[in-house]
Design a protein around this nucleic acid. Structure first.
Length: 422
RNA sequence: CCAAGUUUGGUUUUCA
């Protein structure tokens, strides 16, 4: 049974759930009863693939086989639910486990807290955190890191910094990830000075900045008008062994930053340099450049880059087409944009709601309200779920044409679909 | 004896 479990674990890690599940069936056929470990491995594997319902099914199956779910099983399921935003059911499961007398541990609490935090439910996060303390479970570095990240993503970097200091005061040693999330939060708030202080603290404490650290800093520099410093950092990463080699994200971030400052030719030079040196670029890197050139009205250059991308054997994905569609819309080349819809379908990429929104917005701008409405209808007919942006566009166009009734009607549709107007 | 939790890149509307 140990060997079965080991094999199943390997298959799950390789995302080969199909075979993992078959192997479990195989054990059963061989009259070997899967134990709790077998179940939890599979449940975790299913959750990682987003198949949370099936994982829940396994919990039921455990019960029918007389195996009561243990703290591992509950923690995995609570994490599976919460990390996909289903905190409601996560909490239910948590209460169920309390009812069954299974004691949550630090992992269980941390999973729940993270789910709450990601939804920005600050008060309940604190309540749960306190409940954990009362329960005699001590938060560890992962718990703190999760909350710090939640605060940062909610735009509360100052609070996150305070919590970071509380953590230090408790003698908990921050890990690389802790520093990285905090750095990201501070950079996003424009608190670069604080970010660099933290970076220095990190180094002083003997934690080596990793690739994520550098990418985070580079992004912070770019987003705060310090692209030249970002360039310097990038060069250090390329040449200085005490740094870390840049990866495709580093390159994409830098190119994105340069493009936002309208330094397209420099961005393209760097991009070419990377290609010539066999460094990593991918579809996303190309997409940034192509989008930027289209926005700058440089249709020819954008097409050159697109061609180069194809020549080098990269397959454009849905977002690459989106960049084209959006670009052509902004250049008022709506017919071409619509042509891309056809082309991308041909190549197995479905246009997204985003793409429809781009075209509808462009149509509205040139006052082709009738066509915009038709496109909206086409979207509905094609089983697309318009999002609040779609509604904003189309309602805006109705208002512009003085058609108050249909604007109101659309607003009602929107509410029925549970979208919030703003 | 073997299972669970935290971080980095590209596209869309209006107004600021």
């Amino acid at each position: 049974i140990v060997s079965y479990n080991t094999l199943i674990k390997g298959l799950c890690k390789a995302r080969n759930l199909q075979e993992a599940l078959e192997l479990k069936a195989g054990m059963e056929n061989a009259n070997l009863a899967p134990n709790s470990l077998t179940y939890t491995i599979l449940m975790d594997g299913l959750c990682m693939e987003g198949r949370v319902d099936e994982a829940m099914g396994l919990v039921e199956e455990m019960r029918t086989k007389g195996l009561e779910p243990n703290v591992f099983a509950y923690s995995i399921m609570i994490n599976g639910l919460c990390s996909r935003g289903n905190v409601k059911e996560g909490k239910e499961l948590f209460n169920e486990m309390l009812g069954k007398g299974v004691s949550p541990n630090v992992v269980t609490y941390t999973s729940l807290i993270n789910g709450l935090c990601k939804l920005g439910q600050l008060e309940e996060t604190i309540t749960t955190f306190n409940a954990m303390l009362e329960d005699g479970v001590q938060p560890d570095v992962v718990t703190f890191t999760g909350i710090i990240d939640g605060l940062c993503k909610d735009g509360k970097a100052e609070k996150a910094l305070k919590l970071f200091n509380v953590m230090l005061g408790k003698g908990i040693v921050p890990g690389n990830i802790t520093y990285n999330v905090l750095l990201r939060g501070l950079c996003d708030k424009g608190l670069l000075a604080d970010a660099f202080n933290i970076l220095q603290l990190m180094i002083e404490k003997g934690e080596r900045p990793d690739l994520v650290t550098y990418n985070t800093i580079l992004r912070g520099l770019c987003n705060n008008g310090k692209v030249d410093d970002a360039m310097t950092l990038f060069r250090s990463m390329l040449t200085d062994k005490s740094y870390v080699e840049p990866d495709v994200r580093t390159v994409t971030l830098l190119i994105h930053g340069l493009c936002q400052e309208n330094r397209l030719d420099l961005a393209a030079d760097i991009h070419n340099m990377m290609i010539e040196n066999n460094k990593v670029v991918d579809v996303q890197t190309f997409t940034v450049l192509i989008g930027a050139y289209l926005r700058a009205d440089n249709f020819g250059k954008a097409m050159d880059i697109w061609k180069k991308m194809i020549e080098l054997g990269f397959t454009p994905d849905s977002l690459a087409y989106s960049a084209l569609i959006d670009g052509f819309c902004k250049l008022n080349m709506l017919n071409i944009a619509k042509g891309i819809f056809v082309i991308m379908r041909d190549r197995g990429c479905s246009p997204t709601v985003f793409d429809y929104n781009s075209v509808m917005a462009a149509l509205c701008k040139e006052s082709s309200l009738e066509q915009a409405r038709r496109l909206f209808q086409e979207m509905l007919n094609g089983n697309y779920e318009p999002d609040s942006v779609s509604y904003n566009i189309i309602i805006d166009s109705a208002l512009k044409s003085g058609n108050l009734e249909s604007a109101e009607e659309l607003l009602n549709h929107m509410l029925q679909r549970g979208l919030n107007p703003d």
